[in-house]
Amino acid sequence: PPQTPVRAAMTSIQQLRGDLTSSGDQPSTNLATYFKNCTVDPTQDVLKRLETLGQTFSQRFGQAVGPRCVVLGWQRFKLGVRLYYKVMEAMLKSEEKRLSVQNFSKLLNDVTFHTSLLACSLEVVMATYGESSFKTGGYNHGGGGDPVETDVCFPWILDVVSLTAFDFYKVIESFIKAEPTLSKDIVKHLETCENLIMERIAWRTGSPLFELLKQEHEGGAAEQVETPAS
């Protein structure tokens, strides 16, 4: 049968769900071991954070798509959690091989790392379902078009999980490396997110990038850091 957008989306969704059937809703034995090897075990914090963010995500999804869709939001979130655990385990395996260490206490107790990884996983799920596809010319301008298509598109997820674009950016490349089964379209989608951050979002007022640039300049040439407006 001829390929249609709907058929292509169905195939991508089935593929994603298929890839995640063996990944559970809880950390795998291997991932649990990484958690237990930490100086400070992050397990409880991870579970608590997922519970809170799951509620926020499904409610915001319902607000954006329709009140009857809160359940759908939970389903998307659960798929995102499976991907989050799967990619985290792959990242840690690769870091263990690279650094020859098994104690990742600092990384695994870093809230920003977990939030970025979860946000990226959720963005992949949303993009697979066609709910984050830059329908309004590469950016969510708000208003116009089908709300399902525009209201939850990137960078919607950053606002939902209260994450800066700069921190989201950090995780993208390692995410793509750690999850080789991502489709070409999803990789392209993440690349578009990356470009949006680099070209616009990371340069908005309040971005941590300005403070980092300032710190970088201190001690060296005392150049004036550009303001967001310029």
């Binding site: 990242m91 690769s94 870091e95 690279r98 650094l99 990742f104 600092k106 990384l107 870093d110 920003t112 790392f113 950090k170 995780v171 490349e173 390692s174 793509i176 490396k177 991502l182 070409k184 990789v187 392209k188 993440l190 690349e191």
Partner: peptide, 21 residues
């Protein structure tokens, strides 16, 4: 199978990006 350009060097990983080595 995709055209993504990987920019991180072999000695860089997620630990360094979150300042945890």
């Amino acid at each position: 199978s995709h055209d993504y350009h990987f920019g991180l060097e072999d000695h860089e990983g997620i630990s360094e990006l979150f300042d945890c080595d």
